[in-house]
């Protein structure tokens, strides 16, 4: 039977919060990165492509550790973080950043596939009709890869719900502050007699993922209808 403690409910709320924030924050950057990779011939394109895709192949723990080095007090961005007087390590912000970085390649890949599927001739037609690049971006490219953006967001949201390795390193496992569903499950499995509780959270996790898929399918269908 599904029985959740207040701490579990907090973990679920945190998971949703982190995944939503990470997905929404990444979206503009993901769109921009995909646009640069598909439609422009900027120098250093290969480097950008590598950097974007790296978190996909690196163990999440490594990503978490690199982020820790980056944002730590003696890290490269340490002074900036200190100057702005924000704390990232062991906070919700850290959890969001960890999820955002790990899920980013999935978002970019999806949007990129969508953009590559746009017939270049639509863009040429728009140009001969007097549209500037930003105009084409908003009236042709954005609407035509709407489904791909949605798919990317779904993937990233789901990936963020499950983010574990990078999060535990950068944000820790603090109940009520940074403990998301996977971290809570991990804690239960390390606690004697916690199996039942772990299973409840697993079921919640499955349910959440299912709901995300359903919503994404429904939205995609409404896109197709137009």
């Amino acid at each position: 039977m599904l029985s959740l403690t207040p701490q579990d409910i907090e973990a679920i709320a945190l998971s949703v919060k982190v995944a939503t924030a990470a997905t929404l924050l990444s979206l503009p950057f993901g769109f921009a990165a995909a646009y640069l990779l598909v439609f422009t011939r900027i120098p250093g394109r290969a480097v950008l492509e590598g950097v974007v895709n790296l978190p996909l192949v690196l163990p999440p723990v490594v990503v978490g550790y690199l982020l820790l080095l980056l944002f730590g007090q003696s890290g490269v961005l340490g002074p900036v973080v200190h100057f702005l007087d924000i704390r990232i390590i062991f906070t919700l912000k850290g959890a969001v950043i960890a999820s955002a970085v790990v899920g980013f390649p999935l978002l970019v890949r999806s949007i990129r596939i969508g953009m590559e599927g746009i017939d270049d001739q639509y863009i040429q037609a728009a140009r001969t009709l007097g549209a500037q690049w930003w105009d084409i971006l908003s009236t042709i490219i954005f609407p035509l890869c709407g489904r791909a953006i949605l798919a990317g967001m779904t993937l990233m949201f789901a990936r963020s719900l499950g983010e574990f390795g990078a999060t535990i390193i950068l944000a820790g496992n603090i109940p009520g502050i940074t403990q998301t569903i996977p971290l809570a499950i991990y804690e239960y499995t390390n606690t004697p007699g916690g199996d039942g509780m772990a299973l409840s959270l697993c079921l919640v996790s499955i349910g959440l993922s299912f709901v995300v898929l359903l919503i994404s399918e429904a939205t995609a269908r409404s896109f197709r209808k137009r």
Partner: peptide, 16 residues
């Protein structure tokens, strides 16, 4: 192309 103001009708229409 947008500055040239030369219209093009393509073989396959290319309607959006």
């Amino acid at each position: 192309p947008q500055e040239r103001r030369i219209g093009v009708v393509f073989q396959h229409a290319h309607l959006f």
